[in-house]
Simulated assay, not measured.
Amino acid sequence: MSIRIIDSSTARQLPWKNGKGVTLELAIAPPDAGLDDFDWRISSARVDSAGPFSHYPGIDRSLGLLSGAGLRLNLPEQVSLELDSHTPVVAFPGELDVQTKLLDGPVQDFNLMSRRSRWQHRLHYRELQGQQWLGSSAVLFIYCCSGAGLTCARADNAPISLSVGQGLLVQNEAGPWRLTNQGRSGLYLARLEPTSAGQEAIDRLGDNWL
């Protein structure tokens, strides 16, 4: 069980798998995993130019938009996805050949990846004004991406304050969580649940998987 604050300003910087950019790694499981053997990974990257995405066989990917006008993702068989203010989250399999095009200048993205044989994930964008309640997940990541800061509280914990660029990573902790603010905040909410195979691996590792 674990609750911790993740700050993008202190996240470690790593090269993209294809070497064409730099990523801020916010969280990864297992903690000592690399780009070829992680179970799940949460990161953020700046995209300055058009080009290919890295290949991640067996990985499901979801992208969110943190800043900039957006991206067009060109997939095989003439399929394209647009990540912009109207569609702030897109999802696709990591093994596909994906070519990206900037809609209007560089962007900063939010990237959630999970190994589909072990984990399932969901990524949502929400605007918070006032109060919202969140239920439990095996892994819950609350990331404040714009606007006012917010406070995350649970009945048995002291309130935790988040500023823009900070996230709260909650692993195997029961909810609900109450989110409040004094203005308007843009949030990305990442949820991960283990598949049956993933749960068996977690049970074997015990607390060491966190």
Rank of each mutant, 00 (worst) to 15 (best):
S196I: 09
R4N: 06
Q99P: 12
W16T: 09
L210I: 15
P31Y: 06
N18F: 12
D39G: 10
G165E: 05
L205D: 05
L205S: 10
S163Q: 07
T151K: 09
Y188I: 02
D156P: 10
D37C: 11
R61E: 14
R72V: 08
S43L: 03
K20M: 15
H86T: 15
F38S: 03
G21R: 05
P88K: 05
G34L: 04
G70Y: 14
S196M: 12
D104G: 10
T100R: 03
Q120P: 08
L179C: 02
E127N: 02
P57L: 01
K17T: 01
S54N: 01
C145Q: 09
R204C: 03
S114P: 00
G51V: 06
S163D: 08
L179W: 02
V139D: 10
L169G: 06
D32R: 00
P93S: 15
S137P: 04
C152H: 00
F53Y: 09
D7M: 05
N208P: 01
G135Q: 00
V98A: 06
R122L: 04
R184S: 14
G70M: 14
E77M: 02
L134H: 04
K20W: 13
G198R: 09
G105Q: 12
R178Y: 03
L189M: 13
P93T: 13
N157S: 05
A45M: 00
A91S: 14
N18V: 14
I3K: 04
T87V: 04
D60N: 04
P76F: 11
N157Q: 01
G94W: 12
G94R: 04
S146C: 06
S114N: 03
P30R: 02
A153T: 15
S43M: 03
A29F: 01
V170S: 00
P31T: 10
I202P: 08
D32P: 02
S85N: 15
T195Q: 09
V98K: 13
G183K: 08
A69Q: 09
P52I: 00
L192D: 08
I42H: 15
A33S: 07
G198Y: 01
A29D: 02
Q166E: 13
A158K: 13
T23V: 12
F141G: 09
L63C: 08
V98H: 13
I42K: 14
E25N: 01
P31G: 10
D60M: 10
P57T: 06
G147E: 03
T151H: 02
L14I: 07
V107P: 03
P176T: 00
R4C: 06
S67M: 01
A69M: 07
V47T: 08
G21E: 04
D39I: 07
T100I: 07
S117W: 06
R41G: 15
L189G: 13
L24Q: 12
T87M: 03
L128T: 01
P57R: 08
